[in-house]
């Protein structure tokens, strides 16, 4: 499944469009960036309520397919700008992380 399919099927909004044709290899839910850094791999989708610019750095470092910001949290302009510069897919959902994870799981994405 590609990021663009995920956007459609899990009803996500696209806050920053990088490359939506990237394949999704798995998903991870965490709000501690040190934990995300240690436990995600290339192609992963990361669901979080964190919005600090550092999330973009983590996504590029681990070559994540996309960040999904849950609970309708709005990232700061600086975060969005950094994501645009780095070509990182930043998606949004009004649902809390648990619901987003549930939707992805139902779509066949496993950790």
């Amino acid at each position: 499944m590609k990021v663009k399919d995920l956007v459609k099927k899990a009803d996500l909004s696209v806050l920053v469009e990088g490359d939506l044709d990237v394949d999704v290899e798995g998903a991870y839910v965490s709000d501690l960036l040190s934990d995300v850094m240690a436990n995600t791999e290339a192609g992963g989708v990361w669901i979080t309520i964190q919005t600090h610019t550092n999330i973009v750095a983590i996504a590029t470092l681990n070559e994540l397919a996309a960040i999904v910001i849950s609970s309708g949290k709005e990232p700061a302009d600086e975060t969005l700008e950094r994501a645009r510069e780095e070509g990182v897919n930043v998606l949004g959902s009004a649902d809390p992380s648990f619901e987003v994870a549930g939707k992805l799981y139902k779509l066949g994405i496993k950790g």
Binding site: L32, L33, S34, Q50, N54
Partner: peptide, 14 residues
């Protein structure tokens, strides 16, 4: 520190 720090919560110190 492993708790309540830039490193633990936000990955690293910019």
């Amino acid at each position: 520190r492993p708790a309540f720090s830039m490193t633990s919560q936000l990955g690293f110190v910019p």
